[in-house]
């Protein structure tokens, strides 16, 4: 059983963050800039990677929970750094350490499937829908398909 520090180290190495040249391409294409009005350097993939390199405590950091785990930054990185894998791995460790309160739990199957700020963004864009529809949108995609089938098969 590896300790938390070892796990964080492993995630960092596997994501390849030490190859980062700080070009900032990942932040340029990051959809978070479009999603959050509070988008900042600390939240951007470049900032998160820098913090990871400097050895800051990212697991307790709120900025870890805004990422949509998309593929944009990984796609454009000239050095093959995967900011998605970094965030995903760190989130897993955070959940293991009981810091998973920023992860949305599906009310049907009980699994954590998305970060709360991301879900909040989706619901804010769909603010015109009825509260019942919002309840449905808080269910994880797999369960939602299942629900739709049980209602219509």
């Amino acid at each position: 059983m590896e300790s938390t520090e070892q796990a964080v180290d492993r995630v960092k190495r596997e994501a390849g963050i030490y190859a980062c040249v700080e070009c900032g391409r990942c932040s340029a294409v990051c959809p978070m800039a479009e999603m959050y009005t509070t988008f900042s350097v600390a939240m951007s993939p470049r900032g998160v990677i820098k913090k990871a390199i400097m050895g800051d405590d990212l697991i307790h950091d709120v900025n870890l929970w805004y990422c949509t785990e998309c593929n944009a930054g990984t796609d454009v990185c000239p050095q093959g750094v995967s900011c998605r894998d970094l965030v995903r791995g760190l989130r897993e460790i955070a959940v293991k350490n009981g810091l998973g309160d920023k992860a949305q739990i599906c009310p049907r199957c009980g699994e954590r499937f998305v970060a709360v700020p991301v879900e909040e963004f989706v619901l804010s864009r769909l603010a015109a829908e009825a509260p019942d529809v919002h309840e449905l949108l808080k269910v994880c995609p797999a369960c939602r398909r299942d629900l739709y089938v049980t209602r219509n098969a």
Binding site: T68, C70, P141
Partner: peptide, 10 residues
């Protein structure tokens, strides 16, 4: 960018 927000919204 394959963020999957459409899956969450549908």
């Amino acid at each position: 960018v394959e963020c999957g927000l459409c899956t969450l919204a549908c």
